[in-house]
């Protein structure tokens, strides 16, 4: 009785969790080995990248710009009484580059592109399109999954950089035109603490996040079972797992890259 409960509520979930993680890793490994085996489907890579870019840019801009604004306001709330208004932009830029633009961009990409990939692949699985490709002697991982991997791996950093500029523009507008911060102080403050290392770190982070979105969404979509309901579940799981994973991963990456030196 008790053993049964333990089995059902502790052992099974733990087992399932590691089973799932193992499968995801194997899936990623398989995709990566196939990456170096021709053919590479250029047209699919381009269409997927285009798709990711066009669908994600607006959500990214719309979430990052207001965040830039609130950062400016809250930073000023603390720094103005201390009389170090000119440090405001240095603080905002560091937070923006190192943390918020990679994280927010990836969250929006997971929500937008990740779910659509999971749903698309899932629908293809349910309608047997994936089996059909298999039978026509075309490896569906090469044809469907790898282009999506590459698209996310490329677009995630690009969108992160765009997000960074948009976020800084947001905080510039608020601090200079609304809060009346000196324009020159803001601009010089930007470069006080920022280094190339930070930018590189941010891009590295966003590449990792891009891969995480790609692996998890494609895995969830590729192995859908259970019809229309299964597709819905896959899309849902994909976005939740992605976001949880990179918020946790983000902590570790940050501590590796920027632990107080």
């Amino acid at each position: 009785m008790v053993l049964g409960m333990i089995d059902k509520y502790v052992v099974q979930p733990v087992y399932n969790f590691f089973d799932e993680v193992g499968r995801i890793v194997l899936f990623a490994m398989e995709a990566i080995t196939l990456l170096f085996r021709p053919p590479l489907f250029w047209r699919e890579i381009l269409t997927e990248s285009h798709h990711v870019a066009t669908t994600c840019i607006i959500p990214v801009v719309c979430t990052v710009a207001p965040i830039g604004c609130i950062l400016a306001i809250q930073a000023l709330n603390i720094l103005r009484p201390l009389g170090v208004e000119k440090l405001m932009s240095s603080m905002v830029v560091i937070i923006m580059v190192r943390e918020l633009s990679p994280a927010m961009t990836s969250i929006m990409i997971a929500a937008q592109a990740g779910t659509s990939m999971a749903a698309e692949l899932g629908t293809m699985r349910v309608k047997e399109e994936i089996e059909a490709q298999d039978v026509m002697a075309v490896n569906p991982i090469q044809y469907l999954v790898i282009p999506r991997f590459i698209a996310l791996f490329i677009m995630c950093p690009i969108l992160t950089v765009i997000a960074f500029f948009v976020g800084m523009a947001g905080s510039y507008v608020i601090s200079v035109y609304v809060e009346g911060v000196n324009k020159g102080a803001f601009l010089t403050g930007l470069w006080t603490y920022l280094e190339m290392y930070d930018v590189g770190g941010a891009i590295f982070k966003s590449c990792v996040f891009g891969l995480v979105v790609a692996v998890i969404s494609c895995y969830k979509g590729f192995y859908v079972t259970g019809g229309a309901a299964g597709v819905g579940r896959a899309a849902n799981d994909a976005v939740v797992i992605c976001i949880t994973t990179f918020l946790i991963l983000n902590y570790f990456l940050t501590s590796i890259l920027w632990i107080t030196m």
Binding site: K127, E128, E129, A132, V135, M136, A137, N139
Partner: peptide, 22 residues
């Protein structure tokens, strides 16, 4: 799997639900 792809170069299949690319 690699051999299966080679074998499948010699056959084709029509699926019950069509499996057309939508």
């Amino acid at each position: 799997p690699r051999q299966l792809y080679e074998m499948r170069l010699g056959l084709s299949m029509q699926f019950q639900q069509g499996a057309l690319f939508e």
